[in-house]
Amino acid sequence: MSVSNYFENIKDAATSVFEGFTITMSHLFRKPVTIQYPDKTPMPVTDMIPERSRSWLRVEMDICTACLNCEKACPIDCIKIDTEKEEGVGRYMTHFDIDMAKCMYCGLCTEPCPTGSIHFIPEFERATYSLDQMIERFVPEGGKVIPYKPPKKDKPEAEAPAAPEAPESPAETPQN
């Protein structure tokens, strides 16, 4: 280590510490980025998160075809669909349950869905006091839901009526 190197090191230490101090000092005067969820937010939290953020699963029952693709795709079997057949009525669903306590939000169920019926919505404040309440039941207890029949492929103009890829209108709740 040469003599000039020695003094160079001292100079470097002094200037870099000085520069570091100016940077940290300037950060003291900047606006904190912390959002004090849930009680001190500049606007309602649902407005702050992105429109297409993927937080909670929902099934639009009026366009569900009961194809069971989502049930097969789910890697942890948290989707449970029961179908029955009856003369005159045809095939209908008696259960469409998603156990959100098990769900790991991988999104694999949304991919094979032919109509985009099962999808994520940007709602996330769904904490409950018991695990039972975490099970989303899309078919009401004892109810029957007739599956949606997509129009044939050779009639392109009558294709699936506004398959809600993005939940533009989350007000329509087909839960019951």
């Binding site: 000085f18 520069e19 100016t22 940077i23 000092m25 300037s26 005067f29 900047r30 606006k31 904190p32």
Partner: peptide
């Protein structure tokens, strides 16, 4: 230098 840092990064200030 502190003021320069603040101006240069165009940060939102909060005193």
């Amino acid at each position: 230098r502190v003021i320069w840092q603040l101006r240069n990064t165009k940060a939102t200030l909060e005193f």
